[in-house]
Design a protein around this nucleic acid. Structure first.
Lengths: 108, 108
DNA sequence: TACTGGTACATAGTAACACAGAGTAGTTGG
DNA sequence: CCAACTACTCTGTGTTACTATGTACCAGTA
C-alpha cells in the first residue's frame, strides 16, 4: 500500500470498521474481506484484528463467540451504545476535516 | 484536541500544508496562523515546523530565507514540481477515502 | 536600562497507529 | 499426508502529531 494511504488510514480505519459494525455485527475475518471488497485491497489482516482488540478494550463493542462451520470459532463484534456515540463523534470529526479539505481543493 | 482529530490529521495535515503552499509560498509561523483561522485551533506550532522540515528533506518544497521586520528571518517554503506531483497523489488518495466514507455514511 | 509581548524557528521525549511477518488452529478435498 | 481456506494472535518497526521547552530577534514602554 502507498505511504499516503497508510498514514491517512490512521484514525479513519477505526471509524470505517465501526461504521461497518453499525450496519450489523461481524467478525474479524469477515470485516477484512468486506474491506477488500470496498477497495482497501491490501489492508493487513493483523491490522484489523489489532484494531478490534483496541475497540473492545475501550468498551465500544460487545463480543460473542460463535462456532464456525469452517475453522476456529469466530469472535463476533457488535456496536454497543458507547460505540454508537463514539461513531457519531467520528462522523463529526470527519465532516470537519472533509469540509476544510474540499475548501482547500477548490480554492485555487 | 481530541484523540480522533489527532489521529485523523496523521497523513492529512501534510496534504493540507502542501495545498496551502500550492496557493502561494509561505513561512511556518504564517502557516500555523492560517491553520488556526481555518478552524484547526490547536495544532501545535512544533508540529508544523517538524512537518516543514520533513517535506523539505523529501524535496517537495524549495526554501528561501527572507529577513523579517519583526523577529528572526523567515524560512519561506514554496511548492516545487515534485511537491505538485505529490500533492496530486494526495488528492487521489483523499478522494478514494472520502468516497468510501460517504458511501458508508449513507449506507444505513 | 530592564521588561514585556509578539514574531519565528527548533528539538527531545512520548503515545498511537498501521504494517510486515510469522505463528497457531481448525476444516475440507485431492 | 498436505495444500488451501478459514480464523485469530503476536512481536517488532516506522511514521506521525503532541507536549514541553528553549533559542533568538525586535518594538514599545516604564
Amino acid at each position: 500500500m502507498g505511504r499516503q494511504m497508510t498514514e491517512m488510514l490512521k484514525g479513519t480505519l477505526e471509524g470505517i470498521v465501526l461504521a461497518i459494525l453499525s450496519a450489523r455485527p461481524a467478525y474479524g475475518y469477515e470485516i477484512t474481506a468486506r474491506l477488500r471488497e470496498m477497495g482497501f485491497s491490501d489492508i493487513a489482516e493483523g491490522t484489523v484484528y489489532a484494531l478490534l482488540i483496541r475497540i473492545e478494550q475501550r468498551g465500544l463493542v460487545d463480543v460473542e463467540k460463535h462456532p464456525s462451520e469452517k475453522g476456529p470459532p469466530r469472535k463476533v463484534y457488535s456496536l454497543n451504545a458507547q460505540g454508537q456515540e463514539y461513531l457519531e463523534d467520528f462522523w463529526g470529526t470527519w465532516s470537519f476535516l472533509a469540509e476544510r479539505l474540499e475548501q482547500l481543493r477548490k480554492g485555487e
